[in-house]
Design a protein around this nucleic acid. Structure first.
Lengths: 124, 124
DNA sequence: CCGCATCCCTGAGGATACTG
DNA sequence: CAGTATCCTCAGGGATGCGG
């Protein structure tokens, strides 16, 4: 469909970040950093996620090599998800990001209130 | 038990990161870190973005206080977008993230190939 | 217990046309 | 020049049911 496209900033990087920083990934990664988890353990740990989204996110993370999926062929099949060494290296960047968010949340909220309040003075 | 801080990912943080790390924000932020830009300058700098998405992203970034919108009431109205001090503090976290992406892209691509290759043999 | 398949709905985002 | 308004598409993700 698309031929050679002009890359804006870092198209591959953008794509990778999209896959890793999406809605549920951070929570899952965070959970798996603590301990390996089974599918339903993750569901319990992150109650808001649906089965479908959880499966999709886990697959995506596995595909990108940040988590590993281990099938244990016991009686009712058990599946373990664990963080990989590559996945562990994500902790620092994510931590820095979350630290920024924590630290600047007040400023952001102030900006948001300012923005709403200013809504009228902005003529155009 | 170790004493290191647990990453907390609550809804407000997630939402904030979603608003700031979305499809076009990084590119725009990057551009505005270099120099203040006008609307069409940004369009030219990031050719893939449509007016609608650009407008929406700029509004979102402005609302969150990371950029500022300055209207100059000259003859044909001019609008300047500039990074705020708060916006500048985003550079480091984003930089760390991009550095991670750069550094680990090869590993990720390897993992992806592994994943695809494993998909056939596994027959799942 | 794990997770794939299906239907359905919402909303982000692209294309296009039109104003101040 | 800097948007707003309208239409349309399509992927994300909730709900439910089935299969290994």
């Amino acid at each position: 469909m698309d031929t050679d496209e002009e890359l804006v900033i870092d198209a591959p990087h953008r794509e990778l970040l999209d896959q890793i920083l999406d809605k549920w990934s951070l929570g899952i990664l965070n959970e798996l950093c603590e301990r390996p988890c089974r599918f339903n353990e993750l569901r319990r740990a992150i109650p808001q996620v649906t089965q479908k989204s959880l499966t999709a996110t886990l697959r995506r993370l596995e595909r990108n090599g940040v988590i590993e999926r281990k099938v244990v062929s016991t009686r009712p099949v058990a599946v373990m998800y664990l963080i990989t060494p590559l996945g562990k290296t994500l902790r620092h960047p994510v931590d820095v990001l979350l630290a920024w968010a924590s630290q600047n949340m007040p400023a952001v909220e102030r900006a948001r209130r300012d923005f709403e309040a200013r809504g009228e003075t902005d003529g155009l």
